[in-house]
């Protein structure tokens, strides 16, 4: 066997397999009765809303000044009070010196609004970010406790990790919201972030423990023999080296966290998944919305893994 085999036949095969799979899916979908409405999807990201502007009193229109696409309508009440209202020029429904009653529509204002998919994505992002930071702190402390010389600390950390890894996240979210949330009067967001952070923290703890234990003992001995105390040796010598090693599994954990955050929709937090369900109940565009949401999760996690990849390359300077 020669070492330098050309790779292009395999690329061709890969492309062929993907095309066959796509064609198969296409054919299967065409056999069922489903009307695709992809054109409606962008509206769920960003849409232009029309809001009516109404006259707040009985009165008449003094004058209308149109500048480009906006018109300024001046209104005067029966008691002489003056008000100006700005509306879009092509939606003006009144003319100058027309008499109006309170609540009559003068025109409409068009505004860009964020759609439910965008707000849902934002909720998912800050929920995951908050939970990640907390998970990192919890995981670091628990990981250190796991390798502590103190029996009680070790035992507590081990119990925590065992309990969290041995129960489903969905159940933990229910417990966090319905039990702990009720006892301590937590908001659903606090319960959601807390449950995610405690769940991921247990896994981060194991990653941190393994990372620290993978550093050769000689590093700690060298640091201590220079007169550093345990804390200094950890902060300056052991943890920076471990960080480099645990970055890949850690980023995997945080990517899982983003995906797992979809479970908080069960306690009525309107994250990306919940937004999708809400859109579907009103539009029945089931296929489009779920595919779009899957793509959005994929984009977020891909960006994160690219960032980590970049960071890893930078940290590899000393190798």
């Amino acid at each position: 066997m020669t070492g330098s085999q050309s790779i292009w036949p395999w690329k061709l095969l890969l492309a062929a397999i993907l095309i066959v799979m796509a064609a198969g899916t296409w054919g299967a979908v065409n056999r069922i009765d489903y009307t695709w409405r992809w054109n409606r999807v962008p509206d769920y990201f960003l849409y232009k809303s029309e809001e009516s502007r109404k006259i707040p009193f009985d009165g008449w229109v003094e004058k209308i000044i149109s500048v480009g696409s906006t018109s300024t309508v001046s209104l005067v009440s029966e008691s002489g009070e003056k008000v100006t209202v700005k509306v879009a020029t092509n939606t003006v429904r009144v003319s100058e010196s027309e008499d109006l009653f309170e609540g009559d529509t003068i025109g409409f204002v068009k505004e860009w609004r964020l759609g439910p998919l965008t707000t849902g994505l934002w909720t998912t992002l800050w929920l995951s970010a908050g939970a990640s930071v907390l998970a990192l702190i919890i995981g670091l402390l628990t990981g250190l406790a796991r390798i502590s010389r103190n029996y009680t600390l070790r035992g507590l950390a081990a119990l925590y990790v065992e309990f969290i890894r041995g129960t489903p996240l969905l159940v933990q979210i229910f417990i966090a919201y319905f039990f702990i949330g009720t006892v301590f009067d937590l908001s659903r967001n606090a319960a959601g972030i807390g449950a995610l952070a405690i769940f991921a923290g247990a896994y981060v703890a194991e990653i941190v423990r393994a990372g620290i234990q993978s550093i050769p003992k000689g590093q700690m001995e060298a640091a201590r023999s220079l007169g550093m105390n345990l804390f200094q040796a950890m902060v300056y010598i052991i943890l920076p080296q471990s960080f480099k090693r645990i970055l890949p599994p850690l980023s995997g954990q945080f990517i899982s966290l983003i995906k797992d955050s979809s479970l908080v929709s069960v306690i009525a937090i309107t994250d990306l998944t919940k937004s999708g369900r809400e859109i579907i109940t009103s539009t029945f565009a089931t296929f489009e919305i779920w595919l779009t949401i899957a793509a959005m999760y994929l984009i977020v996690t891909s960006i994160l893994s690219q960032l980590v990849f970049y960071l890893e390359r930078r940290l590899a300077a000393s190798d």
């Binding site: 001995e221 023999s225 220079l226």
Partner: peptide, 17 residues
């Protein structure tokens, strides 16, 4: 330990520095 320097068989330099 500040007053007692130690040199190891495996050097134990800090690889990230």
């Amino acid at each position: 330990r500040r007053e007692v320097g130690m040199v190891f068989q495996q050097f134990n330099l800090f690889p990230h520095k």
